[in-house]
C-alpha cells in the first residue's frame, strides 16, 4: 500500500520525465556556469571576503540560492496550473488522496530536485577547491530545510491566487530582492542598517549563512539553532498555510 503522498510524488516525477532534458540543464549546468562567470570573473577583482577568496565565499551562497530558486520554481506556476488549467488537484481530490498528501507530495518532489542539484553543485565546488571544511557534508541538509521553508509558503501563496500576474509581484518584491540582498553576493553587513532586518526575515539569508558556515568551517553570524529555528518556523507555518489554502481552494 503506497502512501498517497508518494503517489502524488510519482505523478510529479512522471511529468518530470517529459521535461527533464531542459530542466536538468538549468538545474545542474547553470549554477556551475554562474560560478565560473561570477565567482571566477568578478572574483579576480575582489580581494578576500571574510578571510577567504571570493569564489570560496560565494559558493555556499550560490548553492543556497539555487535551492531557493528551484524550490520557488516548483511551487508557483505548476501549483496554480494544477488548480486552474490542468485541474490535477481536482482529480486527486476525487480519490483517497488528501489535501495534506498533495502538499507533502509536492514538497517531496521539490526536495528531490533540490537535493540532486545541490549534490552535483557540491562536487563541482569541491573540484574548484571551494570547500574548506568537512562540515560541507551537511549542506544538503541545510538545502533541504531551506527548500521546504521556501516551497511550503510559496505553495500556499500559489493556491491562494487566481491569476498568474501575482507571481510577477511575488518575484519582484520578495524573491528577487531576497536573492540579491540575502548575503549571496556580498555580506549583509554592507547593507544600510535600516534594510538589514529585511534580509534577516528572508529564509534565504539563514540558509546562506548556515551553508557558508558549513563549507568554510566558521561560526555563522547567529547561533546555529537560531538560523535553523527560523527555517523550521517558515517550513512549519508555510506547511500549515499551504494545507489550509489547498483545502479552501478544493472545498467546493
Amino acid at each position: 500500500m503506497v502512501s498517497p503522498a508518494v503517489a502524488v510524488l510519482e505523478r510529479h516525477l512522471c511529468l518530470y520525465r517529459r521535461l527533464w532534458r531542459a530542466s536538468a540543464f538549468s538545474s545542474f549546468v547553470l549554477p556551475v556556469l554562474f560560478l565560473v562567470s561570477f565567482g571566477v570573473g568578478v572574483g579576480r577583482y575582489v580581494g578576500e571576503v571574510g578571510g577567504v577568496g571570493y569564489l570560496a565565499w560565494i559558493v555556499p551562497g550560490v548553492l543556497a540560492s539555487t535551492a531557493f530558486q528551484m524550490a520557488v520554481g516548483d511551487s508557483t506556476y505548476s501549483v496554480l496550473g494544477d488548480f486552474k488549467w490542468v485541474r490535477g488537484f481536482h482529480a486527486m481530490r476525487a480519490t483517497p488522496v488528501g489535501v495534506r498528501d498533495m502538499v507533502v507530495g509536492g514538497l517531496l518532489y521539490a526536495l528531490l530536485r533540490v537535493e540532486s542539484a545541490v549534490v552535483v553543485f557540491l562536487v563541482v565546488a569541491g573540484v574548484f577547491g571551494a570547500l574548506r571544511s568537512p562540515w560541507a557534508v551537511v549542506t544538503p541538509v541545510v538545502a533541504a530545510l531551506l527548500a521546504v521553508a521556501v516551497a511550503a509558503p510559496v505553495m500556499g501563496f500559489s493556491a491562494s491566487i487566481d491569476h498568474d500576474s501575482y507571481f510577477a509581484l511575488l518575484f519582484r518584491f520578495v524573491m528577487i530582492p531576497s536573492a540579491l540582498f540575502g548575503g549571496v553576493f556580498f555580506p549583509v553587513d554592507q547593507l544600510p542598517q535600516v534594510v538589514r532586518p529585511l534580509a534577516y526575515v528572508s529564509p534565504l539569508w539563514h540558509g546562506v549563512e548556515l551553508c557558508r558556515a558549513a563549507t568554510l568551517g566558521v561560526a555563522p553570524p547567529w547561533p546555529v539553532w537560531v538560523h535553523a529555528g527560523v527555517l523550521l518556523v517558515f517550513a512549519g507555518a508555510g506547511g500549515v498555510w499551504a494545507v489550509s489554502a489547498f483545502g479552501r481552494r478544493l472545498r467546493d
Binding site: M1, V2, S3, P4, V6, A7, V8, E10, R11, C14, A91, M92, T95, P96, V97
Partner: peptide, 9 residues
Amino acid sequence: TYARYFGMS
C-alpha cells in the same frame, strides 16, 4: 498515476 492514488501496487 491515478491508480497509484488509490494505493494500488
